[in-house]
Write a protein that binds this DNA or RNA. Structure first.
Lengths: 236, 236
DNA sequence: GCAAAAGTGTTGTTGCTACACCCATGT
DNA sequence: ACATGGGTGTAGCAACAACACTTTTGC
């Protein structure tokens, strides 16, 4: 049977409100070393609660869109970004996430390419932060960012997610830089390239990246499909 | 009745309703071979839509409980089971999951021990099915079960989830049976036991399982903590 | 020519698979 | 004694880390 809580106060039985948020990752050159590092955009809250604190971009889910579409729209509206990768992260529904009302947030995480990230709106109320230095965020958003980072690192380690940080054509060294930035390690270039070359999803092109200071590296292309989300009903 | 969608224009802006469902897995001896196989309980729908079809146990989320608590309560109320493992699976929010209204379902998956599963309520409206033979289910529940199975298999392959199918003490052969049942393969007993013995989370006890037909196997205990969910704020 | 990144070869180690073998118990 | 699952030993193979080495460019 279903708990027929007819007599409890209206507020007790009202459904919690539903929101969508996204954690957006992109690589940008570090201001100090110049090597790529992981960044994410946050929006400043312009009302209570947590007014003036930074928070993840998000908003309510409208009834005409799927969760994925809601995340995509929201991300575009608040930051102007179009992600190359978008996946559900987790549904957060703790009782006291927001002091004013009960909110269940379905959080997505996204990857955007550096070209996108470069021309992203940056304003008084939208700003990029290094993923490891976001400061104190509104609500439980620090925990969410942390979890998104864990998931990103995990998925990178054995997934085909790295290429969504890059454009259509890339060098194997660029892929290595993605791994080094996200996992914060140094990898042996020789062994790393061999590993990549042994994965069938990476296709060698005839092109070379010109204009570098040294021997021009060959360009590659990624031919695989994203992931195994239940929503991603792609691939024949 | 609290669904305040009285007129159509209101329905267009009203937040989608929020439900919790769970996919519950347990091992039970196969009726034919006697070897353990994977089963799950389903409930019969007693109203439209999809009346008389089998569906995942679930219900609305009340405002006084967290998502995890809601899943746990729901599972107990509908099936009488207490899970040894409970983890969020995915939030399903497609527009046309239910023909009558827009519903977002946050789905959990659970493991219960065979002792629990044996004394579970089985009635006209609650019945256990082999995980690979559930038939046609209500809503998008076939896709959900499929995805839960993928996740279970994946988590089993490199996770510490197998032990939650078993009691506190178990033999290494029992762990192997779990793997064989869930992944539907045969594993080399010798190599499998070596692999287990090399994981520090498995503790050898001085006890032996008596009463078998052959040499009594040693009993082990699992000492690890579940997983890396953001909700599982356990472990120091 | 020299520096530096691109790219290839080689060697030692580790982990896993397959399978032979011994051990302890019930019948 | 023997059948059966519990448990150990070991040889062969594949994957990978470490690092020496060659190639191709810009300066």
């Amino acid at each position: 049977m279903y708990s027929s809580s007819a007599n409890v106060s209206e507020r007790a039985t009202a459904a919690p409100s539903l929101a969508i948020s996204t954690v957006i990752f992109a690589l940008r050159p570090s201001e100090s070393s110049g090597r790529p590092t992981l960044w994410l955009p946050l929006v400043r809250r312009i009302r209570e609660p947590y007014r003036d604190l930074w928070a993840l971009p998000g908003g309510p889910l409208t009834h005409v869109e799927s969760l994925q579409d809601g995340a995509s729209r929201n991300l575009r509206e608040t930051t102007g970004l179009t992600p190359s990768y978008l996946e559900q992260l987790y549904a957060f529904g703790g009782l006291h996430r927001s002091p004013t009302q009960r909110v269940v947030s379905i959080v997505y995480w996204a990857l955007v390419q550096p070209t996108e990230a470069a021309l992203a709106d940056e304003s008084e109320n939208v700003k990029w932060f290094r993923a490891d230095k976001v400061g104190d965020l509104a609500f439980d958003h620090n925990a969410i960012v942390e979890y998104a980072l864990r998931r990103l690192r995990n998925k990178l380690a054995y997934g085909s997610v790295a290429y969504h940080f890059l454009g259509e054509y890339f060098t194997l060294a660029q892929v290595r830089e993605v791994y080094e930035a996200v996992l914060d390690t140094r990898l042996d270039p020789a062994n790393f390239r061999r590993q990549l070359k042994s994965t069938p999803e990476i296709e060698e092109t005839g092109e070379y990246l010109q204009g570098g200071k040294h021997r021009p590296p060959r360009l590659y292309r990624f031919t695989g499909r994203p992931g195994l989300d239940p929503d991603n009903r792609s691939t024949p």
